[in-house]
Simulated scan of single mutants.
Amino acid sequence: MITMENIVRDGHPALREVAEEVQLPASDEEKQHLADMIEFVKNSQNPELAEKYQLRPGVGLAAPQTDVKKRMIAVHAEDAKGTLYSYALFNPKIVSHSVERSYLTSGEGCLSVDEPIPGYVPRYARIRVKGTTLEGEQIDIRLKGFPAIVFQHEIDHLNGIMFYDHIDKENPFKEPDNAIAIDR
């Protein structure tokens, strides 16, 4: 089971390294770690379990945040219509994206960053992601809105990029050009 103690914090070298591809089929150890990651994200959203295990609520987790330098992410997030996007993926990759951008009006947060970092984080409004599920199935999903932002945030972790790297240093609340504002 993954707890907050397993989450590395900002400044840890694992957060700035490019994670390695998972050789498929994944090992039992890799499958177990990815299953633990999605379980952590789901548990963190359950108020009783979050309190019991002292979990900060999260919508996604990338393996480097647990000091495992492999290309694995877990996402459990709803879009504006309440549709649940729950995925545990090996080797997720953005294969195409829109020109149009989007950003969260509330800014982004991260389980590895303890303090709030204000500012808008420009992301692609729509993305297409390919990856491999825990069961070894190849998937190809189209995402927009909040789930698209979450996937981009987690995939950034696999490339050693933190969300605040995208914030305009001169003007953190400068609205990105050609962008949709998403309230969350």
Rank of each mutant, 00 (worst) to 15 (best):
I2M: 02
I2F: 10
N6H: 15
I7M: 01
V8A: 02
G11C: 08
L15K: 02
R16G: 03
V18L: 04
A19G: 08
E20Q: 14
E21Y: 14
E21H: 14
Q23C: 13
Q23R: 15
P25I: 04
A26Q: 08
A26H: 06
S27N: 07
D28L: 02
E29Q: 01
E30S: 09
K31V: 07
K31W: 07
Q32V: 08
H33G: 07
H33W: 09
L34M: 10
M37F: 15
M37L: 13
E39L: 14
E39T: 15
F40D: 11
K42T: 14
N43C: 08
N43K: 00
N43H: 12
R56D: 11
P57K: 12
A63N: 09
A63T: 13
T66A: 06
R71M: 11
M72Y: 01
M72G: 01
V75C: 07
A77G: 07
E78C: 03
D79W: 04
K81V: 12
T83H: 15
L84F: 09
Y85V: 09
S86P: 10
Y87H: 02
A88P: 06
A88M: 08
L89P: 03
F90E: 06
N91E: 09
S96P: 00
E100K: 15
S102G: 12
L104R: 08
T105S: 05
G107N: 06
G107D: 10
L111E: 00
S112Q: 05
S112C: 10
V113P: 13
D114L: 15
E115Y: 14
P116D: 07
P118D: 13
G119I: 01
Y120E: 00
P122I: 08
Y124Q: 07
A125L: 09
A125E: 04
R126Y: 11
R126T: 06
I127F: 02
R128F: 05
R128G: 03
V129L: 04
G131E: 00
G131W: 09
L134Q: 00
L134S: 05
E135R: 13
E135G: 12
D140F: 01
L143D: 01
K144L: 03
F146Y: 09
P147D: 06
V150E: 03
F151D: 00
Q152W: 08
E154F: 06
D156M: 08
L158Q: 04
L158M: 02
N159S: 11
M162S: 02
Y164E: 00
H166Y: 01
H166S: 05
H166C: 11
H166G: 04
I167R: 00
D168A: 04
N171Q: 14
K174I: 14
P176C: 11
P176I: 10
N178A: 00
I180W: 11
I182P: 07
I182R: 00
R184S: 01
